[in-house]
Each structure stands twice: as structure tokens, then as C-alpha cells.
Design a protein around this nucleic acid. Structure first.
Length: 352
DNA sequence: AACTCGGGGAC
DNA sequence: GTCCCAGAGTT
């Protein structure tokens, strides 16, 4: 809101800028949709869409968001159904249903539509969600504090039948477990000095590369890395990183650069919604030999898929959670030389 | 209908 | 660790 106070402002931003602001929040497609949506609404020229029908046309706005905006912002008498609402209604009406089933959810929309308060639809919808988030929780619901306990069929059933519990509604679904993969990240420091003692902040740059525009973490910046489906030993991991650096950046020691140091910094596990990723982190300090190199040639400084930054610039950048974790591990490693994974992740400074 | 997308809070 | 999801879009 501070950076782009209006849709007009936002619509003028680049995806790069929006990604930067969104970094760390996850579900990065939402950042792209937000920008596309802003552009679309501004291009239409008319007023902000204020009905579910119109909102639904905006990229990134689905049934839930359309209902939420229409009811909360525009007082339209429409329902919202999210995970909380499904749970609350399933218990209120003692519906033992699969919350992931499309038809089931449709029925919950119908039910919610019948219940929504015409005089205060936004407040009603928010209260239903809030009830699910605070009292009618998935585990150990606080029924004794519930404002609608007298109307709750699940609670009623649980009092008449010892084998029934409020918690059992709605049906528990077995979720597919994450796949495992293995990533090796190389924080590559390009030093302009051969002398280890002269490697100060001012003459050292870190290499960042941009991910592809589609797929996981699309278009976001990270340190050079290779990802495998299987675990690989240290020599294999280094070999693959070497190949990447040679292929993408013509870094080919000892021909055009020297390896000043190469150390294992540590490892940690990063969990996505559908991937459990073990990440190995190394710090690779290189010195470029004399003569021209792609990393310092005028033409390539303007490259869009990589950049060299000093420490401060890296710290200021909007980076994904795991990339921040990697960098904080490296910083700590350089500070006291310990190789461990106990670095607490420093949260991204809030935009106050 | 199943899959693809992150990250963090509560416990 | 395990549970949850203020979900949308694509395949």
C-alpha cells in the first residue's frame, strides 16, 4: 500500500518489482495475478468491479476472493466459503463430508448463501471465518465458548453419542505426501583480489541468477543451484555446480579464474507445499584472472537473468525464504567459521 | 479430479 | 514434527 497506493500506481509497476515486494510470502503466482489484475482493471477504465460476476473475471480472483471482496468491500449479499467455513458449517449441520470434494463444497456454498445476513453480509462472512479460526478449530475446538453452541448439531450429537466427536467433522482427508528432492546451492563470491586478506566487502560481489518465468518460484532470484531427485555425494554436487558455472558464466578454473576457497557451509531442509527439499550450501570464492570476462563485460552487465551484488544489496533484496536462509547461513559461516544449520531465519524487515 | 504452486502459525 | 490453510489456475 505504501509502494503502490492505488491500482493505477500498481499497474505501472514491473513484474520484477512486484516479485521483489512479494518475496517471502509464497504462492508467487499471486504476485503476477495481482499485477495482471491491476492492469486489467485500469485498462477497462471503469470503476472497480463490485459484483461477484465482474470480480470473477479478474485474474487471480476465484470464487472465494470474489465473494469476500463483494461482501466485505461492497456489501453485496453473497456468501464466502473457505476451509474455515466448510468446517464450521459441517459441524453446525453435522455434515460428515469430504471437504476436498467439489460437489460437497458446492453444497456448502448453497448453505452459506442461505445463511448470510442480508443486513451485514461482510461482517457475517468474516465472523463465520473467524469462528473457524479461533474457536471452531480443526483440533480441540473450544465448544464451551462458542456463541452458537446451542444450534450446533455436531455438538448435540456428541452429547448423545459417546462415539461421536465435534472434531470428527468434517471428514479427514488423507493428503498425498511431499516428494523429496535434493538441491545444492553455491554462493559464489567473485573477488577482485587474489589476496585472501584483501577480500573486503568493497571488492567482492555475489552472483545471483533469475529462475525461469514459469514453474516453481517463477522469475525469482536465487544463488546458482542444481536440483536432483536423488541424493548425491559431495564430489558429484561440486561437479554439477562446476558444470553450471562453466556453462552459464564461463567460469572455468583454473583457466580464467582461481578458486580461492570452497567450503561446505551446511545443510537444511526446506519444505514447500508439495516438495521436501534438502539443501546443501557451499561458499565458493573465486578470483577472476586478468582480461575480459562475461561477468564484467559492459554488454553483459545489462543481462536480465543474473547479477552481481555486494553484501548490502543482497541483504536488502526481496528473496524467497530458503534463499534468505542460505544467505544467513553463509553470513554466519564467514563470521565465526562454524558450519552448522542452527542459524535462525531472520525475517524480512517489515514495511512499516 | 488431480496436480501445481510457498510459507508460516499453532500446538 | 504435525496439523492447518483468509485458494486459484492448469492439466
Amino acid at each position: 500500500m505504501l509502494k503502490w497506493p492505488t491500482l493505477q500506481h500498481l499497474s505501472q509497476a514491473s513484474l520484477e518489482e512486484v516479485n521483489e515486494m512479494w518475496a517471502g510470502l509464497g504462492y508467487y503466482r499471486r504476485a503476477r495475478f495481482l499485477l495482471e489484475g491491476a492492469k486489467m482493471i485500469v485498462a477497462e477504465g471503469s470503476e472497480f468491479p463490485n459484483t461477484v460476476f465482474a470480480l470473477r473475471k479478474v485474474p487471480g480472483i476465484g470464487d472465494y476472493t470474489a465473494g469476500a471482496i463483494a461482501s466485505i468491500a461492497f456489501k453485496q449479499v453473497v456468501p464466502v466459503v473457505d476451509g474455515n467455513v466448510v468446517r464450521v458449517l459441517a459441524r453446525l449441520k453435522a455434515i460428515f463430508a469430504n471437504p476436498k470434494d467439489k460437489t460437497t463444497v458446492k453444497n456448502f456454498w448453497k448453505l452459506a448463501a442461505q445463511l448470510v445476513d442480508p443486513s451485514r453480509p461482510g461482517d457475517f462472512n468474516q465472523s463465520l471465518m473467524e469462528l473457524g479460526a479461533t474457536l471452531c478449530t480443526p483440533l480441540n475446538p473450544n465448544c464451551t465458548s462458542c456463541p452458537v453452541l446451542s444450534q450446533c448439531r455436531a455438538l448435540h450429537n456428541s452429547r448423545n453419542d459417546e462415539s461421536v466427536m465435534v472434531m470428527d467433522y468434517p471428514m479427514k482427508v488423507v493428503k498425498t505426501k511431499q516428494r523429496n528432492d535434493f538441491s545444492t546451492v553455491s554462493v559464489v563470491e567473485i573477488s577482485r583480489s587474489q589476496d585472501r586478506l584483501q577480500q573486503t566487502k568493497s571488492n567482492s560481489r555475489v552472483l545471483l541468477v533469475k529462475r525461469p518465468d514459469e514453474g516453481l518460484l517463477a522469475g525469482l532470484w536465487e544463488f546458482p543451484c542444481v536440483t536432483l531427485d536423488e541424493e548425491a555425494d559431495l564430489s558429484m554436487r561440486r561437479k554439477l555446480i562446476d558444470q553450471l558455472l562453466k556453462k552459464s558464466f564461463k567460469l572455468n578454473p583454473p583457466k580464467n579464474c582461481n578458486v580461492i576457497s570452497r567450503e561446505l557451509v551446511g545443510e537444511f531442509v526446506h519444505v514447500f507445499s508439495h516438495i521436501r527439499r534438502k539443501i546443501y550450501v557451499e561458499l565458493l570464492v573465486l578470483h577472476l584472472k586478468g582480461g575480459k570476462h562475461v561477468l564484467f563485460e559492459e554488454d553483459d552487465i545489462n543481462a536480465t537473468d543474473w547479477k552481481l551484488l555486494d553484501c548490502e544489496a543482497v541483504s536488502r533484496m526481496g528473496l524467497t525464504s530458503s534463499v534468505r536462509k542460505v544467505y544467513s547461513m553463509v553470513q554466519k559461516f564467514k563470521q565465526d567459521g562454524t558450519s552448522n544449520n542452527s542459524v535462525p531465519l531472520r525475517k524480512r524487515p517489515k514495511c512499516s
